[in-house]
């Protein structure tokens, strides 16, 4: 990214082109676990985006006062405090969903995406730019979660956001739910497929061959 990129491009860049999940491998830890339904995926996205934006603002405000040697601890403590606030809010107002998210809200603390953005961007940029960058990354993360969440809920339970779209056999309809979609492996397959799809459309993202056979020269790649 150019050092003086405009605010708009900072916001839109991470949506697909620099998507934090599919390109930078950040924050997938929680991205896959909460996508069995759209409602949990959306709640998680909102929580993560809120934490991301607020931590970016705070860290960017005090960026000149954090000694370099202890910055990781400072960042983690700020993020953890924000996560505690969000967790308490969710428990107060959205108790049922917060039960379904269980420990994953708390795990936003160690989400590589949050620390990755604060470490690589907020530390060197003024608050407004950092917040816009954080918002962009948050939306990019939310997009991936929503897409995977929709596919898993639609094919796994025949519904979207709790509305029955495909009438299932149990309810007298025709659709037999694919139970695999609600299990762990399908999340991996879907994310793998999503990465593949994005990289087919944007071929510049595909990785160079990682492995060289031992008897070929190194520079062939």
């Amino acid at each position: 990214m150019a050092p003086r990129a405009g605010l708009l491009s900072i916001l839109t860049e991470p949506l697909i082109r620099q998507n934090p999940v599919t390109l930078q491998i950040l924050g997938i830890c929680s991205a896959l676990a909460v996508t069995t339904s759209v409602a949990t995926a959306l709640t998680m996205s909102a929580a993560l985006t809120a934490v991301l934006v607020m931590s970016a603002a705070l860290i960017s405000l005090i960026r000149r006062h954090i000694p370099d040697s202890i910055r990781l601890i400072v960042q983690i403590v700020i993020v953890a405090s924000l996560v505690i606030v969000i967790d308490q809010l969710l428990q107060a107002y959205l108790f049922e969903i917060s039960q379904r998210l269980s420990v994953f809200v708390s795990l936003i603390t160690t989400n590589c995406l949050v620390l990755g953005r604060t470490e690589s961007f907020s530390r060197h940029n003024p608050p407004l730019r950092s917040m816009v960058d954080a918002l962009g990354s948050g939306i990019g993360y939310s997009l991936v979660l929503t897409v995977i969440g929709s596919i898993r809920e639609l094919f796994g339970a025949g519904s979207l956001l709790g509305w029955q779209v495909l009438p299932t056999v149990d309810q007298g309809g025709w659709y037999t739910p694919l139970n695999l979609m609600l299990l762990a492996p399908s999340a991996f397959f879907l994310l793998g497929g999503l990465v593949w799809a994005i990289r087919t459309v944007l071929p510049e993202q595909s990785e160079a061959s990682e492995f060289l056979s031992p008897d070929e020269p190194e520079d062939r790649a």
Binding site: T22, F188, G192, I198, T200, P203, S206, E210
Partner: peptide
């Protein structure tokens, strides 16, 4: 996978997710 001929878009991250799945 050094010896596998994968489609370009699948190489690296994509195939790793599918393997993990």
């Amino acid at each position: 996978l050094a010896y596998a001929d994968l489609p370009n878009g699948l190489r690296g991250l994509g195939i790793t997710f599918i393997l993990a799945g």
